[in-house]
Simulated assay, not measured.
Amino acid sequence: MSYCLIIDDSRVIRKVSREMLEGMSFRVAEAENGEAGLLACRAEMPDLILLDWNMPVMDGFSFLTKLRATPEGQHPKVIFCTTENSLEHITRALDAGANEYIMKPFDRDILTAKLQELGVLPVSHTA
């Protein structure tokens, strides 16, 4: 079973994302900011990370930069899930090592398609 870490300061977003991912047979953990996310990654490196951009304590971009600077931090697929939609933000995220970028609000169909594109979810999996 694949393991996903959701890093978002919104409890509602974490809850909705968790329900979607658990429905796709992921084991899920949550963190409310990038600092808590790094601690969770040190305890167990996830296969997939859903990452918000704007959070207190440590934002998503800082988290991603620190994660990718570690050898084990190259493994997880990282999807930015954010309201930041400027080309500058998207380019910065992808250049820093994000694998994909989706806009909030997103639904199960969008998440499923992105996970299939990344090879994290079999294409035969139905939404």
Rank of each mutant, 00 (worst) to 15 (best):
P76V: 00
G97Q: 01
D8H: 09
A127H: 08
E117W: 00
K77S: 15
V16G: 04
I7Q: 04
C4F: 01
S86G: 09
E84H: 02
H89M: 08
T70L: 13
M20Q: 06
A43W: 06
V16L: 11
M20R: 02
P105T: 13
N54L: 11
I102H: 10
K114W: 03
V12R: 15
S2P: 15
T83K: 00
G73M: 00
T83S: 08
T65Y: 02
P122W: 04
L118C: 08
E84Y: 00
S25F: 04
T112P: 03
T83C: 02
R108G: 03
A93C: 11
F106V: 07
M103D: 05
D47G: 07
A31H: 07
D52Y: 09
T82K: 05
K114Y: 06
V12E: 07
A69D: 12
N54M: 13
V78G: 00
Q74C: 04
A127R: 12
L118N: 02
I7S: 05
S62R: 14
S2Y: 11
W53F: 09
G97V: 01
A36V: 01
D95K: 08
C4M: 02
A40R: 14
L51C: 03
E84N: 08
V120E: 15
T65K: 11
K77D: 09
V123I: 15
K77Y: 04
A96P: 01
W53P: 02
H125E: 10
A69M: 13
S25N: 12
R18E: 15
S25W: 05
T65D: 07
E44I: 09
V28G: 05
T82W: 04
R68F: 03
S62Q: 14
Y101K: 05
M58I: 11
K114V: 15
A43L: 11
E84A: 09
A31F: 08
A69H: 14
E19N: 13
Q116H: 06
